[in-house]
Amino acid sequence: MALFFRRRKPHTSPEEPWKDHASVSRETGPRRAAVGDHDPDVDEYGDELAPPAHVIKQLPRPTEPRIIVVANQKGGVGKTTTTVNLATALALGGLNVLVVDNDPQGNASTALGIEHSPGTKGTYEVLMDGVGIIEHAQPSPHSPNLHVLPAAIDLSSAELELVNERGREHRMRDAINQYIEESGVDYVFFDCPPSLGLLTLNALVASTEILVPIQTEYYALEGLTQLLRTIDRVKGNLNDDLVLSTILLTMYDGRTNLSREVADEVRKHFSAQTLPVEIPRSVKIAEAPSFGETVMTYQARSVGAVAYQEAAEEIARRGAQEES
Rank of each mutant, 00 (worst) to 15 (best):
Q138G: 02
A89G: 12
G76S: 05
Y124A: 06
S140C: 05
D103P: 09
K121Y: 02
E115A: 11
I68E: 02
S109N: 10
M128T: 04
V131M: 12
G75Q: 00
G130E: 15
L95D: 12
V99D: 11
G119F: 08
V148L: 11
A151V: 07
A91S: 12
E64N: 15
N107C: 14
T63S: 14
L127C: 03
P65Q: 10
S109V: 05
N85D: 09
A91R: 03
V77G: 13
Y124N: 10
S140Q: 06
M128E: 03
V126Q: 08
I153D: 00
G132D: 15
Q105N: 13
V84D: 12
D101R: 11
V77Y: 01
A87S: 14
D154I: 13
T63Q: 06
I114W: 07
T81Y: 01
L90T: 13
L90F: 03
I134H: 12
T80Q: 05
T120D: 02
T82Q: 07
H116E: 13
P118Q: 07
L95G: 10
H142C: 02
D101E: 07
M128Q: 05
D154C: 08
T120W: 01
V69C: 11
T63A: 13
I133C: 08
L149W: 08
T88Q: 11
N107L: 02
N85L: 04
G106W: 09
L86V: 13
M128I: 15
H147A: 06
G93T: 09
S109Y: 06
E135H: 14
I67Q: 09
P141A: 10
T120L: 02
S140W: 05
A151W: 07
L146E: 04
P139H: 04
I68L: 05
A111G: 15
A137R: 11
T88W: 00
N107A: 15
G122R: 11
N145H: 11
P141R: 05
D103L: 08
T120R: 13
N102Q: 15
Q73S: 08
A108K: 02
T83M: 07
V131N: 05
T123I: 06
T88E: 14
V70S: 05
L146K: 03
V100E: 04
N102Y: 07
N72C: 09
I153G: 00
Q138M: 09
L149H: 12
D129R: 02
K79R: 10
E135G: 00
L95H: 07
V126Y: 05
H136E: 04
V70R: 04
A152G: 15
V70C: 11
L146H: 08
A87I: 07
V131R: 08
V70H: 04
G132Q: 14
T82M: 11
T123G: 08
R66N: 08
A151K: 12
L92H: 06
R66G: 09
I153Q: 10
P139N: 03
G130R: 01
H147I: 10
P139W: 00
I133W: 08
D129N: 10
T110F: 04
